[in-house]
Amino acid sequence: MQNRLLDVVEKSTMKSTTPNFEIGDTVDVHVRILEGDKERIQIFNGVVIGRSGSGSREMFIVRRIVQGEGVERKFPLHSPRIADIVVKRSGKVRRAKLYYLRQRTGKAVRLKERFSSTAAAESKAAKTERRAARAAKKAEKARAKAEAASSGTGAGA
């Protein structure tokens, strides 16, 4: 019961949907930044090397190499400052935390690309799209039919 109430509070501050990404993915993190009173979106690109926490406290770490220097940023997943997370490439990894990348430089940093899940996701997306298109077509047909019927009765009267 105690936890139920905590869940209520946490749910209220969490995003309803979060982008689906995994450890080893190369992502673009869209961060909202305030400059004076103007807001703009800055993109931080890098490899997700870990996720931690649960509920509204979930965080993820993105690592990239800038001018030969490793840079890591840890983002709160549910923060309103995080506008979007776009997966650019999926990496094939066997760890939940890719801290070993910190010891590597140059070409060794690269991760093998993982195609299966992206391919699956793509085909799934395509499938839902097709399904939606079909449903829309069907609805249109039904509407046309109904219209025809109503106009027909109108003419009869």
Partner: peptide, 22 residues
């Protein structure tokens, strides 16, 4: 006292909160 957690304000600031069933 229910417990502690954190919530986000609209500007992205995290507030540490205690939840009370009152």
């Amino acid at each position: 006292k229910v417990g502690m957690t954190q919530i986000y304000q609209e500007n992205g600031v995290v507030v540490p909160v205690t939840v009370l069933e009152c």
